[in-house]
Design a protein around this nucleic acid. Structure first.
Lengths: 225, 225
DNA sequence: ATAATAGTGTCTTTTAGACAATATCAC
DNA sequence: GTGATATTGTCTAAAAGACACTATTAT
């Protein structure tokens, strides 16, 4: 008989709030790690696929649907002893969502809250969730370089400036607005001009774009230079 | 009580044999999918970590140790019904190894064999192993672009030409030997000159290199252009 | 000598990055 | 107008890709 384990999904959900990268954390109500912040997650149901379980947890915790958010598998964590109660193998997912007005609107998990990533990294998270968060952040940072993933942080219509602020928040550095504009508008299929503009305070109104079909950035944007 | 599942590891082991990319396959001796080719793998033991289980399977199937081969987690597959017998969640690993003279030297799994990837992709593999192989191949192809991963296919000492043939086999296209040489020898920390040379047939002897500490290729090599 | 492979140098094109200049708004 | 943001254009440096040329071997 093959050995068995419980299988869980844990979610690293990132969003931007006022230009700062936030991650969704819950507070554990029961031991172990009672009262400590943790990533949202839960067990996979017997007849449920992994992606479906992650999507279900995302909806339960944030109210977002798969139409709004990007969701991808991150990595699986299964060290014996990562959960002191039993052998639990956790499949971690990375989710990116546009800024949400309420922390968690009308959910039964009332203690879910958006936390600045900077602070979450310093906190002692439950289980190995600190490692999972670190891995998720690195994945997000890396994929901004060569994919259109940054648009997942934006609502349906957004400006080039919005998109640039995503990069600046996730990478923690500033980018030249002029070169960035030239780069993203020059990538075929990345942005679709809606014809509308948006005016925020002073300054020339910005063109509003929608996500285009392109998923790859080639050549990539680079973070270190 | 949380639901339970069996947890397995499956391995996508790539190597180069006479300039052709091969993957390690075994033949299933029992139903389901009896007689069909499958990726090597097995169940994770109760007190064993996922990486440790993958390493153990790699040693059992190939005789390679972690000193010889590169091993990294690929992705986890857990659709209900992927194994008709029971709920099995499989954590797939990608392994890259230098060319091995014997298919599997002195293993108890005598039916393991190297198969050209081109053919393995056409064969009907057991379970969802066709998808796992496709994902592993794409991961390997992608990581050659921006990491030093190609050196994992090479023995301790190798020439620039050896390294270029890795790229050509994995990407399925030819690269300009002169530009490739300039690129890899110009990347600091990628290659360490051993001082020796190697002469294969006619032509100027090639300098032998060892892997250097650099793991990133920046800027990357590109496959499509 | 000839063929073959290794390695260097040169040229053109593309792109990044710095930054000047222009456009269009709020005030 | 003044200040702010958006967008376009210009210049320079770095790198890719094409490819001539030199170096060193087997035969």
């Amino acid at each position: 008989m093959p050995p068995v384990a419980s299988v869980a999904v844990d979610l690293v959900v990132f969003t931007l709030r006022e230009g700062v990268l936030h991650v969704l954390l819950v507070s554990r109500g029961i031991p172990p790690f009672e009262g400590r912040p943790a990533l949202p997650g839960g067990f996979v149901l017997p007849a449920e696929g992994l992606d479906a379980a992650a999507m279900r947890e995302l909806v339960e915790e944030t109210g977002l649907t798969d139409l709004d958010a990007h969701l991808e598998q991150l990595r699986t964590y299964g060290d014996p002893g990562r959960d002191p109660r039993a052998r639990v193998v956790s499949v971690a997912y990375l989710a990116l969502a546009p800024g949400l007005p309420q922390p968690v609107a009308g959910s039964d998990v009332a203690e879910a809250r958006w936390t600045p990533v900077e602070r979450a990294l310093r906190d002692e998270l439950a289980f190995d969730h600190g490692q999972i968060l670190t891995d998720g952040l690195e994945r997000a940072r890396a994929k901004l370089e060569y994919t259109s993933l940054a648009t997942a942080f934006c609502p349906t219509e957004f400006t080039v400036s919005d998109l640039r602020q995503v990069y600046e928040a996730v990478w923690g550095r500033s980018l030249d607005p002029r070169n960035f504009h030239r780069k993203v508008t020059g990538t075929p299929g990345l942005l679709i001009d809606t014809g509308h503009t948006r005016s925020d305070g002073p300054g020339r109104p910005a063109t509003l774009y929608r996500r285009g079909p392109a998923t790859a950035l080639n050549p990539p944007l680079t973070r270190e230079a």
